[in-house]
Amino acid sequence: MKKLINDPADVVSEALLGMAAAHPELRIDHENKIIYRADAPVQGKVALVSGGGSGHEPLHGGFVGPGMLDAACAGEIFTSPVPEQVMAATRGVDGGAGVLHIVKNYTGDVMNFDMAAELAAAESGVEVVAVVTDDDVAVQDSLYTAGRRGVGVTVLVEKIAGAAAAEGRDLAAVADVARRVDAAGRSMGMALTSCTVPAAGRPTFDLPDDEIEIGIGIHGEPGRRRVPTAPAREVAEMLVEPILSDLDFTGGDGVLAFVNGMGGTPLLELYLMYNEVATILAKSGVTVVRSLVGPYITSLEMAGCSVTLLKLDEDMLRLWDAPVRTPGLRWGV
């Protein structure tokens, strides 16, 4: 294992020290591993808290700032944060208008955020609503599994719900738009290589040089299937087809197409993939009106990508275009 680290045990805390040094507009509680926007709590505004295992950067800490999250809780690598952390963040951002928890659908994340919401309500009376993202079409048979995983759409939920909160909507309305985004978004990912959790020191799974894994999650979980290495054009088909067959993306106010890097794939290849995806969408009668290309929800140094499509309505489109100022997403300001 070659990594730019000092000690595997200190990776998360030392990365947070770096975020604090690089971003004075953020305030970091190093003991609880919470990243706040420096002016939190913002009085009268619904606050957004997310969090999850580390290793997916810039998600979630890189999306803290005006127009997006008020706080993010960083767990150990690929391990959900604990309720105390989430409670502390919830108390720390509550400006009297309630707190929205944005939770990716993984068993540990859901349970720990549930406990935090119960404890926060019991101890401080902060009103909390949780929205769980579950957009990964690679998970079939949701009835017999933990359900679809929360992946790429989480980034879009955080942006759009963050904008809704910034323009002064109440907690129920912000939660409503977050749920609408989750319901209108679908994702599918693939890996060219595995990733190495620093504490483990070796790749999470073995993937031979001549094979790729289709339908991966963001923790090196297994995908739907393994196939021989293929040209980008064919890989794009393998990702887009299951998305389009799961939800009708034609018509309406158009689609946001998001090609996400898993951490180890250069932008050059991500743009090449975006071209393939856009070509397929055009042929399928899907109108793309917004795009996002880059590593936004990653799996350490895994090479590969995911495709997320979001069927926009007028409200979502306007909220997507609204100003945002975070380390990971920044426009209109």
Binding site: G75, E76, T79, S80, P81, V82, P83, E84, T107, G108, M111, N112, D114, M115
Partner: peptide, 15 residues
């Protein structure tokens, strides 16, 4: 357990 284990097992054994 809830505050030191993390993940699902921390929440479940803690509960």
């Amino acid at each position: 357990l809830v505050s030191s284990v993390g993940g699902a097992s921390g929440a479940l054994y803690g509960t």
